[in-house]
């Protein structure tokens, strides 16, 4: 299991890239030109994210340097331990369902504070890759067709979110060793 996961991690990116490019070439896509065109779009997209990152990282900078983050982490220590989540990643758990750019900022701050290869860093990154901005998505999709009674969608989405959070911690403990 452990080696299977590590192999997937090592092979996924090169294999997916090779597959997509060969598949595109066979289908008659001008792979080089189209790649460059897409990359230009990617630069524009990342530029669009920048103001959000500045806003979030500035706010988290204030929150952490003042000592408020330590107070929050101390408060969250007990509930986090009950769920088996490292306290350092709880801010990400809280913001992830609310805001994509917010989560991006919080994740990057966790990676820089504790190190991307620390246990907290790996759990946070796994979590970010396996959960979604549920409130925003539900609002946009149901808003588009005028649904007011959203029924069981929020509780079910929160169950999925929590399962992703706990699975991230458990899987990272197995694959990368316990915290």
């Amino acid at each position: 299991m452990e080696t299977a996961i590590k192999t997937i991690s090592a092979f996924a990116v090169p294999l997916v890239v090779a597959f997509i490019l060969v598949h595109g070439y066979i289908k008659g896509v001008k792979v080089y030109e189209v790649f460059v065109e897409g990359a230009a779009e990617g630069i524009k997209t990342s530029l669009r994210i920048l103001p959000y990152l500045i806003a979030i990282l500035m706010a988290i900078g204030v929150f952490r340097s003042s000592g408020a983050m330590d107070i929050l982490l101390a408060l969250l220590k007990v509930p986090a331990r009950l769920l088996g989540i490292p306290a350092e990643v709880t801010p990400l758990v809280l913001i992830r369902p609310l805001s994509g750019s917010g989560a991006l900022g919080v994740l990057s701050e966790i990676l820089n504070t504790y190190g991307p290869d620390s246990f907290a860093g790996r759990v946070a990154a796994t979590m970010m890759g396996s959960t979604e901005t549920i409130f925003y998505t539900i609002t946009v999709y149901f808003g588009a067709v005028g649904i007011k009674d959203t029924r069981h969608v929020l509780p079910a989405a929160l169950v999925a979110d929590l399962a992703g959070v706990i699975a991230s911690v458990v899987i990272c403990s197995i694959i990368f060793g316990p915290s």
């Binding site: 299977a4 996961i5 590590k6 192999t7 997937i8 991690s9 090592a10 996924a12 990116v13 790996r122 990154a125 796994t126 979590m127 970010m128 890759g129 396996s130 992703g164 699975a167 991230s168 899987i171 990272c172 694959i175 990368f176």
Partner: peptide
């Protein structure tokens, strides 16, 4: 290294 763990999670 988190690709596999994220996929499983």
């Amino acid at each position: 290294e988190i690709v596999g763990t994220a996929l499983l999670a």
